[in-house]
């Protein structure tokens, strides 16, 4: 799906919609995390934190140049109440210390929160499939409310590697390239790409896009697919966010948008847009972790298994995709 390109890094971020409840100045949050990571790594407590902070600040300023907030910290305040599992398959909750989290007893989760229905800000709250799933995982691990940090997809992988987040949850397609630089959880969602066009368009599928302008979100797997498969017939136009791409579509600046199908469906519901063709790319989403963070990766995988096995996954899935069938691998067992 999306975010993509390359290795981990960066993708054309979606600029975070702002409505956050608590905000901390980005530089301090960033340098704090970087500083903490550095200190941990070297065990030398005398690491020159000032220098690190200055460099981090530079980096943040660099990101800010792009006109997108480098990071916004938002604390989720609501969502489904944590459900405790008592099911037979439930494992002992790990001691939270073993997980080595940035903030001790809660997950700091990086996400490009502008990708409905997976993550978006509505009425000042973070909502979406990824958000709810992470909250559920978090409660199964016996942790407090996760903290969602709105990050540009451009920098989200770099920030994860730099120790800014415990994990990233941002409708990220698992790719081999990315897998070399970060670790992925087990897949938690199946998605394909789709071509969206304005209502009444004469484009009926990817066969009709000769000479047209097709919008994609920068850095996504949709962008890579489009570039590879129809880059020579159509003009591929990169946008920083899915929202910007669809605004351009509605304003007639582009002829189509090629992006993950759940996002297309969401836009079709808002009106003015129709699905021209689904392209089965068989992509799977996973959560991302730092490569040396096996304890957390394993813990999240275990929690995910439980959530699938006891049917909680189906509940969350149905809430966001009422018309879709839960894929077999995510259906409750027994």
């Amino acid at each position: 799906m999306w975010r993509a390109t390359g290795a981990h890094a960066a993708v054309g971020g979606r600029s975070g919609a702002a409505g956050s409840s608590t905000m901390r100045p980005a530089p301090s949050r960033f340098s704090e995390a970087l500083g903490a990571a550095a200190a941990e790594r070297d065990t030398v407590k005398t690491v020159n934190r000032t220098l690190v902070a200055v460099l981090a600040l530079l980096a943040v300023l660099g990101a800010a140049c792009g006109g997108e907030p480098a990071t916004e910290t938002t604390t989720a305040t609501d969502g489904p109440a944590p459900t405790e599992t008592t099911g037979a398959g439930a494992t002992e909750p790990m001691s939270t210390e073993e997980l080595g989290l940035l903030e001790g007893d809660r997950l700091v989760v990086g996400s490009d929160i502008a990708f409905a229905p997976f993550e978006s800000v509505q009425d000042g709250e973070n909502v979406g499939f990824d958000i709810d799933l992470v909250k559920e995982i978090s409660s199964r691990l016996g942790l407090g409310e996760p903290e969602f940090v709105n990050a540009s997809f451009d920098t989200i992988f770099t920030q994860l590697a730099a120790g800014d987040f415990d994990m990233i949850a941002s409708a990220i397609t698992i790719t081999e390239e990315r897998d070399q630089t970060i670790d992925f959880s087990d897949p938690y969602f199946l998605a394909s790409q789709a071509l969206a066009v304005p209502e009444g368009s004469d484009i009926e599928g990817v066969g009709d896009i000769e000479g047209k302008q097709i919008a994609v979100q920068a850095g996504t797997t949709g962008f890579e697919y489009a570039q590879e498969n129809f880059g020579d017939q159509a003009t591929i136009v990169e946008f920083p966010t899915s929202e910007a791409a669809f605004t351009a579509l509605r304003s007639g600046q582009v002829d189509g948008v090629f992006i993950d199908i759940p996002v297309v469906n969401e836009q079709v519901e808002s009106g003015g847009v129709e699905l021209a063709e689904e392209v089965d790319t068989g992509e799977e989403y996973g959560f991302g972790f730092q490569t040396d963070d096996d304890a957390l990766t394993d813990a999240v995988n275990t929690a995910l298994d439980e959530i699938i096995a006891d049917g909680t996954y189906e509940e969350i899935f149905t809430e966001y995709f009422p018309n879709a069938e839960v894929p077999e691998q995510f259906q409750a067992q027994g």
Binding site: A4, T5, G6, A7, H8, A9, A10, V11, G12, A59, G62, D154, T155, F157, T158, A161, R178, T181, A218, G219
Partner: peptide
């Protein structure tokens, strides 16, 4: 380029 290399 940052996207392709995974590096800032």
């Amino acid at each position: 380029a940052a996207q392709q290399t995974g590096n800032f």
